[in-house]
Nucleic acid binder design. Structure first.
Lengths: 344, 344
DNA sequence: GGCAGACATGAAATGGGTTTCATAGCCAGC
DNA sequence: GCTGGCTATGAAACCCATTTCATGTCTGCC
């Protein structure tokens, strides 16, 4: 069951393959009658040109890729959505590579994607969030970027000069801190996130600075790290609440953690926000699903994905492409934060 | 900035391209010293063979695709995770195509994927859930399946004989219904899901039958349709609660809807499950995130994805492949269901 | 010593398109 | 009637691998 090729079409339509190619691509004028005849044969066999052969000679595959650590974490589908939508318009098809958080798989995929000659790679999460990314992991990406446009979303690789699109997470965390301070809170904690990731580090640093600006500090026992999951948030919050003098406000590394925190607090009979305030980060759809609805920091996640594809497109088409684009997050005040207890 | 090819390597290593190819693929023995020399040159230039050229002649692309309606709906990433993991092991890379619920985009992608010569397409959601899928939309998929293995996940296309992997959703809905009946509920409602989708229809039918088995009925005003979203669940539940005689148990088409329902009930001051019981469907991570934790029906979503890839692999390798695989769902009882009010 | 068979290697065909360059036919203008 | 300039079309080169088939060398065995 041989595939039909452009040669078969040419023979049957009694023209040369050149003419068939021209009909397919409109690269040169073809007499109306000839064109019709060719199209008829194409239609008859439902012929579709082999994209591999075309890509091989045109050196364009029309594919790009995204590497994510965990597609079941709702942040990533959100980025993907933004990227995919833009990609479709630009004529790209998308490889989605899930690394399951293993750097080895990222490397593996990087290699496969190079072989497949993708025209762009969007890296989000994984090694690009590592505060101390091993040089060889950095090098792989840098080397890849020599041949293929690489865009890092919400991440960074030291001294790499790679294209970046990211949210100012520190600014977002500062907003969250300012918010609870304004509400009169003085006993403030931060929970969640892996300690070695920049996502975590930046936020912690920003919260610390903001507290210090107001003569407050972030106590060591009120800074707890862990996964980005609901479960982790719940456990970390439980730990906080066991302390003799529990905080009155908790800033969480992301919405998942915050939701876990809400659970832990509610389970212990605390009222939110009367007894304790909780702030999330990301403004995922979940933030309005929980009770009370979550005060959180919104980053324009779709836009992040969209911009990444835009960069790739620009680079591939010799258009000017900003090396670094930063989006400013906003605070969304909902129901999980309120005035500090005893502040009326 | 020309790409290096196998010819460049051959020339520099002073051998033929045949030999280089053999070194790369191990398809024939090569003298150790020659091999080393070739490898040295390859390493030096970090040469990676062009997958397009290879695919063209081998007629194997090592790529498969998944078409989903909405990757931000957590059900789909879960399926994808299962598929991707299996695909990696089998040496496939994954295209992810998001149709945004538009059938036109599905068609578009189908065409692109054929051109790109993917070795399998996993269809989940979208037209395959349409109770009355227009013949031309069916035909497209059937035609595609003549050249490429197609597997439908949790869906179906009338008279199509396509490979399928799915959860017995009717059985799941029956479990949910039986559960609330066992708890003494008599006033039972069903909410959510688009009316024209089989996912919805099957569940409704199963719930109806189960109620009838127990001499109960599903009143028309207790059967409300809508989107699969949290918002929709909230609105539909609100409508139910406005009714003079509100139900004591509500079965929801999925977890999202159920979470919306919980919100609506809580907002009206109802206690769950004391005043009203709520059941979800899917057992998504969210089901343990909400308060109270959701009683729901669990389908082994990862497995669904995994099995789909397995089928594709089997078909492509001439192994026996079951045309239809059905997974049995299970009920997970948590906190959102309890005895009917007044049943002690 | 001679020949079969194993081993190492290369030339050329192949896959299915696109593109360059050449050619043929036709009309207008002088 | 001849030439310049279009338009329409085709032959062949090219993209970059894999694979078949052929060739040359070496070894083993009778």
């Amino acid at each position: 069951m041989k595939n039909i090729t452009i040669y078969d079409i040419a023979k049957e339509a009694d023209v040369s393959v050149t003419t068939v190619s021209r009909v397919l691509n409109g690269t040169a004028p073809v007499k109306a009658s000839t064109k019709e005849a060719v199209l008829r044969v194409i239609e008859k066999h439902k012929f579709q040109p082999n994209a591999l052969a075309r890509s091989l000679i045109k050196k364009e595959t029309g594919t790009i890729a995204m590497i994510v650590p965990d597609i079941t974490n709702p942040f990533f589908p959100e980025v993907f959505w933004g990227s995919e939508n833009e990609a479709r318009e630009k004529g790209y098809t998308f490889f989605l590579c899930n690394s399951a958080g293993e750097y080895g798989r990222e490397s593996e995929y990087l290699s496969i994607l190079r072989e497949k000659r993708v025209e762009g790679i969007i890296f989000v999460g994984g090694r690009i969030n590592l505060a101390n990314c091993p040089p060889e992991l950095v090098q792989e990406v840098v080397d890849t970027a020599k041949g293929i446009p690489v865009v890092l979303v919400n991440g960074h690789l030291a001294k790499s000069q790679l294209h970046r699109v990211y949210t100012d997470e520190a600014a977002g965390a500062a907003l969250a801190a300012q918010h609870v301070i304004d509400l009169g809170h003085r006993e403030i904690a931060f929970i969640g996130g892996m300690e070695e990731l920049t996502t975590t580090i930046q936020k912690v640093k920003a919260v610390k600075r903001k507290l210090e600006e107001h003569g407050l500090g972030l106590r060591k026992d009120r800074l707890l790290f862990g996964e980005f999951s609901i479960t982790a948030g719940r456990e970390l919050m439980a730990k906080l609440l066991e302390q003799a003098d529990r905080p009155t406000a908790v800033i969480c590394v992301n919405d998942f953690t915050a939701i876990g925190a809400i659970k832990a607090a509610t389970e212990r009979g605390l009222r939110i926000p009367d007894d304790i305030s909780i702030v999330g980060f990301d403004d995922s759809p979940l933030s309005t699903a929980v009770i009370p609805e979550l005060t959180t920091v919104t980053q324009n996640t779709n836009e992040l994905g969209k911009l990444a594809v835009e960069r790739i497109y620009q680079i591939n088409n010799g258009l000017p492409a900003k090396r670094s684009t930063v989006l400013q997050p906003k605070l969304v005040v909902r129901q999980s934060t309120g005035r500090a207890p005893g502040m009326a």
